[in-house]
Design a protein around this nucleic acid. Structure first.
Lengths: 346, 346
DNA sequence: GTGAAAGCGCTAACAC
DNA sequence: GTGTTAGCGCTTTCAC
């Protein structure tokens, strides 16, 4: 068995020969380009089927399109991103575009590596989900390839963006908790110092929305933020900080469901119960929020829809790179479950 | 602003000119190939840095390697796969290999599409995680590109595989539950009919291991399997089936943590409690199993290690495509938490 | 409407 | 040890 010499791939030349046409014609049929008669189309399609031909994306990339879209996601463990991906794929079904994924690990260096890889593979477009990269870097990518940014409130002429209204989402949570009678409503945020990101990243905007909403409800003095990260570990540590306050909060608004999971764990370890001692709300309405033993009150972001919008914008930009950039903002809704309740009488 | 004409990419010719050497020399330096003096190396590296040159993977793919590895995973929502990916990435850090991901959706058609895409992009190797594709299809891929299969007990001369000993894992669970005094131990499996997959897929082997272990503990008459899927929904439906039995099981061994989640939900909805009324055990030791309010007894598969092994095997096969195939089997361990306890006295 | 031929960026074979 | 050159599979002028 000669495994060292893989069978030669069927090429466009083979198809052309088999169909008795030129490679040009085959290429035109492949791309549905102008200048091939129906008869030619049929002949070529037949030859393609008979030979089991597949165009070679790497070779295509050297001249034209690869029909491949790259999606960068920061964290494969957050099920919310899976919802977005579902939307992307749904939108791309029945198109000729394929999707390949890359992980950004919430770090600029890793994001640069993976986006570079996508560019090196000559992808036709990229969707970046909640990227932490600098604006300059985003502009650089967008200058090279059609790009859509998801979940970051960016307003750039060079690329489109799709985001949820995080200010409104944070307000929904605070309103709900305040309405239940809570005053000491604390927040766990994903720490942010970079100027641009403070203005654009959802975590920063949720934190800002929290502050605003607290003010709006006359609770400005009660603002209390634990600054960690959007991870389970971050939620755990953040809640421990908050529980150690001289006066404990009666409710915690975690910036993401996964953060709420960590917070709930810390609360349980402290011998307190949810929601009797402390109410907890999350953000994202992931499948785990819906999971009965948890039943987390949370904000629903309609990830599928976000993803579908992103894919649609990207494809339209691939078709027309010159068109003006679009910003889509979707509205979140609150899903009340069993982790929030009126505070205990004191 | 002329966004329709992205700036021309820096090519190997630019680097060669800038460094006053030939493109061959640049290419050699890039690949650390034999035949370039240290002085040349330095000159070329300097030019590369100054011009910000990056080799074009698509172009490289037409002649040599792309230094890109494709990983196909069936389900992005199962956090166990994230553990495997971490292992892959860890192993590949400090190598020149980049990783791109594709989703297989647990379906043959989707797996074919995404693996084809990887081949079209001329990836240097692929890692398939728990693929459901036919053996013929796996052989076909392996004939084209170095490949490692993870989590499927395949013995092929054409590719390597890394799997956990699922028979042993299932036995650990049954042993644990029987040791607690359970007799009516039911199992929720991922339904399988295909012959090859029955022999190779972890779900099928876990179910078979369950049967064997029940026999070994003199509980052959108590074997009771609900056949659904490895999803939260599957766990929910499976548990509902089991709860409707004339005589209810006192313990449920779910084939995956995510299945256990659904089962726990069904049990809660039925007004029963875990573990007082029913013990539940999972498989995979995902982060959600460790999550305190759940605290699921489960089997730990050491996903990181699985991934690291897979990546290492793949790279070694890229280097030597002719070498004999290897099968790595890792041993699982049981993690006892709070969802399992002795059955209630009757 | 169709085909011949150039060339995308790179690597490999070969000459020097 | 270094450079010249052919050619990977495809798309794109540009003749016809």
């Amino acid at each position: 068995m000669d495994r060292s010499a893989p069978p030669r791939r069927v090429t466009i030349v083979d198809v052309a020969r088999h169909a008795n046409v030129s490679t040009t014609t085959v290429s035109k049929v492949l791309r549905n380009a102008y200048g091939a008669s129906p008869a030619m189309h049929q002949k070529v399609r037949k030859a393609i089927a008979e030979l089991g031909y597949r165009p070679h994306a790497a070779a295509r990339g050297m001249r034209g399109q690869t029909y491949t879209i790259g999606v960068m996601l920061p964290d494969i463990r957050n099920p919310f991103f899976a919802d977005i991906l579902d939307g992307v794929n749904e939108q791309l079904t029945d198109t000729e575009y394929q999707v390949l994924l890359g992980r950004g690990y919430n770090g600029e260096a890793a994001e640069e590596r993976v986006t570079d890889t996508m560019l090196d593979h000559q992808m036709d477009g990229v969707i970046l989900i909640a990227p932490v990269s600098s604006r300059a870097r985003l502009d650089h990518i967008a200058a090279t390839v059609p790009m859509v940014v998801v979940g970051r409130h960016a307003r750039s002429a060079a690329y489109d963006s799709v985001a949820d209204n995080d200010t409104a989402g944070a307000a929904l949570v605070v309103e709900h908790l305040a309405g239940l009678g809570h005053r000491r409503i604390a927040h766990i945020e994903h720490h942010e110092t970079d100027r641009d990101r403070l203005a654009e990243m959802p975590n920063a905007i949720r934190a800002q929305g929290y502050r605003q909403a607290m003010h709006a409800h006359g609770l400005a003095d009660e603002v209390d933020i634990a600054s960690t990260t959007y991870t389970q570990q971050g939620g755990y540590l953040g809640a421990r900080q908050l529980l150690a306050r001289p006066v404990r909060p009666t409710a915690i608004f975690a910036g993401a469901d996964i953060v709420a999971m960590g917070a709930i764990q810390a609360i349980a370890e402290a011998g307190l119960s949810v929601p009797d001692d402390i109410s907890v709300a999350g953000y994202d309405n992931t499948m785990f929020a819906a999971f009965d033993p948890i039943s987390l009150t949370t904000v629903d972001q309609a990830g599928r829809q976000i993803g579908a919008n992103a894919a649609q914008l990207l494809v339209s930009r691939i078709v027309d790179r010159g068109r003006r950039s679009t910003q889509v903002t979707l509205s979140p809704t609150l899903v009340v479950r069993r982790t929030t309740a009126a505070p205990r009488e004191e």
